[in-house]
């Protein structure tokens, strides 16, 4: 087993290397003194980070993307968890049709969904708004949440819930005390999915964004004609550092705090 385990560990390492290769390129290039990235780099510089902070447009787009992603992930995960519960825990007519409907948003090519929704809104004479953009993101992140939560729920044994119910807990208590903790990893995965997909979406956002609203991807898209400024690479680096360094730091702090508590006792 230990040989097999070594192989698994090595395989995992390779996969992570593959996943990070483009990220590493972007991070390295953000320290490049030159505007056009090519290796070997001719000099190191922090100028793109300075430029990033001073670039209102990118900073604003970044804030928009964060807010949009956070709202999307909360709404979409809530809807998705409820729907997944219904799909796994109950029997009802038309179930297969509904499960297709729930996954449908990723079956339609995004550009079609984008145009179709605009046509519908034009027919209603409803103007584009941030709320619409948000709901658009919710719609096509929903299938991710439903799929991942459903897969987890199928694996959770019904006995636990029934035991809780038979011990006198009501349905909500059972959900809160038993089901939710058991499916928590899937819920978190769903939130993570919906946030990142929303954060990274281009096609739908291009069509649905109201005037004056730009997300990071749409900013990048508009820069493509002339050249993507390396500030975008710097933004990638900042994002990565925050998402990796902060959890690491948090974990380290937590360990220290708990260590102190044990020693203090």
């Amino acid at each position: 087993m230990s040989l097999a385990w070594t192989a698994i560990r090595f395989g995992t390492l390779l996969v992570y290397l593959f996943m990070f290769a483009p990220v590493a390129v972007v991070m390295l290039l953000s320290f490049n003194a030159n505007q056009f990235g090519s290796f070997p780099m001719e000099g190191l510089s922090l100028r793109w980070f300075v430029a990033l902070i001073e670039n209102d447009a990118i900073v604003r787009a970044f804030q928009t993307s964060l807010v949009l992603g956070a709202l999307t992930s909360v709404i979409s995960t809530t809807m998705g968890v409820l729907a997944a519960l219904a799909m796994v825990r109950y029997d009802f007519p038309g179930k297969r049709l509904i499960s297709t409907a729930l996954i449908a948003p990723i079956l339609v090519p995004e550009v079609v969904l984008a145009v179709a929704l605009l046509l519908f809104l034009r027919a209603l004479d409803v103007p584009r708004s941030f709320f619409l953009l948000l709901m658009g993101h919710v719609i096509f992140t929903l299938p991710f949440v439903v799929l991942v939560v459903q897969a987890r729920l199928v694996g959770i044994r019904r006995d636990y819930e029934e035991a809780a119910l038979s011990l006198g807990a009501n349905a909500f208590q059972t959900f809160r005390e038993i089901t939710l903790p058991l499916m928590l990893p899937a819920v978190l995965a769903g939130m993570l999915f919906s946030f990142t997909i929303s954060f990274d979406d281009i096609t739908g956002t291009l069509f649905w964004k109201p005037g004056g609203v730009e997300t990071v991807p749409t900013q990048i898209f508009a820069m493509l004609r002339n050249s993507i400024s390396p500030e975008i690479n710097a933004l990638g680096t900042v994002m990565v550092v925050f998402t990796v360094a902060l959890p690491l730091l948090g974990a380290a702090l937590a360990r220290r705090v708990s260590a102190r508590m044990t020693t203090g006792r």
Partner: peptide, 17 residues
């Protein structure tokens, strides 16, 4: 952390990566 790391490439926009 390992799971969050998986989504890391998504922080760098799709076109860029």
């Amino acid at each position: 952390l390992l799971l969050v790391l998986l989504m890391l490439p998504f922080w760098v926009s799709y076109i860029i990566r």
